[in-house]
């Protein structure tokens, strides 16, 4: 019997993306540049996070025309963002044929209490997380892939580093605990016990965990790989730089060969100006996207 939308099929899709770079694009032309540069997937959206920040107002799912245009332009998988808790946006993106949905804090949340029940869907989901509690809650809801939240649209890597290090440290702690300590740890983290047990038994997260939120240079991408990311999302970094083609290729290569520093030095030469970054402490609390989601 043919079974679609199983955990293996949904999580497996993310496994195939490992070691790769997923790039934000807003039209077919950018999608082609990303594919040509070696992206493993593209994220179709109306505006990159930096522009969402600048525009203010309510950020929603992209116009279906953009999603369709991107799907028709490339042969690599196409992801798209739905608002946190917005069941219908997610269903629409699924109907359009998006290969992965990002239930994303970059958009304005539609529900301030509940995330989507992602198990209901055939299409797999990726969700952001700052710590292991958040990560395992999302897995509990059916997320098939994780990413750090970082602080999107800032070009500042510090938050992604914080989230990646914290999750790695918390996974190690769980793996090193004895089983009778796990329930209390679950309570402290706000984590589903069964998922902590699975992490302890397998020695790792049950799904792929990418870095996202602030990657603005090849060295940033390599840093996140060094810290244990399975791959990298680049949002505003590429198409806000001076030379997107060159920049995109450099980020792909730095991700593959993240420990080859001679190569990264070479790749980083003459890339032009990266996106202008934002110091995190200059953000108002209401401007912090990472605090969206629960």
């Amino acid at each position: 019997m043919v079974q679609t939308g199983t955990d293996r099929v949904k999580r497996g899709m993310a496994e195939m993306q490992k070691g790769g770079v997923i790039m934000d694009v807003v039209n077919a032309e950018q999608a082609k540049i990303a594919e040509e540069a070696g992206a493993v997937a593209v994220m179709a959206l109306e505006r990159v996070p930096a522009d969402i920040r600048a525009a203010g107002g309510v950020a929603r799912m992209a116009d279906p025309t953009i999603v369709e245009e991107v799907i028709n332009a490339v042969s690599i998988p196409v992801m798209a963002k739905a608002r946190i808790g917005h069941i219908v946006e997610a269903r629409v993106l699924e109907a359009l044929g998006a290969d992965y949905i990002d239930e994303s804090e970059v958009l304005t949340p539609a529900d301030e209490v509940y995330h989507l029940n992602k198990r209901d869907f055939t299409v797999p989901f990726v969700c952001g997380a700052r710590d292991l509690g958040e990560a395992t809650r999302r897995i509990g809801e059916g997320a098939s892939m994780l990413r750090t939240k970082g602080e999107p649209g800032t070009g500042n890597i510090v938050e992604a580093v914080r989230h990646m290090r914290l999750i790695q440290a918390q996974v190690k702690k769980v793996v090193g605990m004895s089983e009778d300590e796990l329930m209390t740890e679950a309570k402290n983290l706000g984590a589903p016990y069964e998922i902590l047990l699975q992490i302890k038994r397998e020695g790792r997260l049950p799904v792929v965990n990418f870095a996202a939120g602030g990657v603005a240079s090849p060295a940033d991408a390599a840093l996140m790989m060094e810290l244990g990311a399975d791959g990298v999302f680049v949002g505003s970094g590429i198409f806000k730089s001076d030379n997107p083609e060159k920049f995109a290729r450099a980020i792909v290569e730095a991700t593959t060969h993240y420990q080859d520093y001679d190569l990264i030095a070479k790749l980083s030469k003459g890339l032009g100006t990266a996106m202008k970054g934002v110091e995190i402490s200059s953000l108002q609390p209401s401007e912090r996207m990472q605090d969206r989601g629960w």
Binding site: Q3, T6, R8, V9, M13, P77, G97, D99, Y100, V123
Partner: peptide, 8 residues
């Protein structure tokens, strides 16, 4: 596409 992906 992904939504048509399956196991058998």
């Amino acid at each position: 596409r992904q939504r048509e992906s399956f196991e058998i």
